[in-house]
């Protein structure tokens, strides 16, 4: 899945669709977080440093429309991208189950870190935010990631 320019076109498309849904259409939590999917999938193809750079860059894009939590997305994306790249040392696999679990954990971790850094703009009690809202967002992102990878593989064949 990871080799070739086609894979990076796929990652780029995820980023474009993410901003189209969230910025152009103004959908917030109703649309899945495809940026985290792009960061996590892209990170598996890069070294730790390069993955961190990818996470930082995409996080900064997200932060550009954030008045109150500027830098929070860049920091959290950098961390999960680095850790995502390091997961190759722990496990090998590209199965759909792996992709789902990988994106689910990655998104949950990112949401938890973002909650900690977001300061005044965070909403709800920590327990509710971290144990109810974040897992739901993670399931949504993982399902969207699964669909995206499925489409990518179908196009590749």
């Amino acid at each position: 899945m990871k080799d070739g320019a086609g894979f990076w076109v796929f990652i780029g498309l995820l980023v474009i669709v993410h901003f189209f849904l969230h910025l152009t259409l103004g959908l917030d939590a109703r649309a899945p977080d495809l940026l985290v999917v792009a960061v996590l999938l892209g990170a598996r193809s890069l070294s730790g440093g390069a993955a961190a750079g990818l996470g930082f860059g995409l996080g900064l894009l997200e932060d550009a429309v954030s008045v109150a939590a500027f830098g929070a997305a860049a920091a959290t994306f950098t961390i999960i991208a680095y850790l995502g790249a390091r997961t190759r040392d722990l496990m090998v696999g590209d199965s759909l189950v792996f992709v789902f679990v990988y994106v689910f954990i990655g998104k949950w971790a990112q949401a938890a870190m973002y909650y900690g850094l977001a300061g005044g703009v965070r909403r709800g009690e920590p327990v509710e935010a971290l144990l109810m809202n974040a897992p739901l967002q993670a399931i949504y992102a993982a399902a969207a990631g699964l669909v995206a990878v499925g489409i990518y593989r179908a196009v590749q064949r």
Binding site: G53, A72, A74, I79, Y82
Partner: peptide, 17 residues
């Protein structure tokens, strides 16, 4: 080296915030 780059970028992000 990778860890150093990642930490540096996290520090930059936190600095920006």
């Amino acid at each position: 080296k990778s860890l150093g780059i990642a930490l540096a970028l996290v520090v930059v992000a936190l600095f920006l915030s």
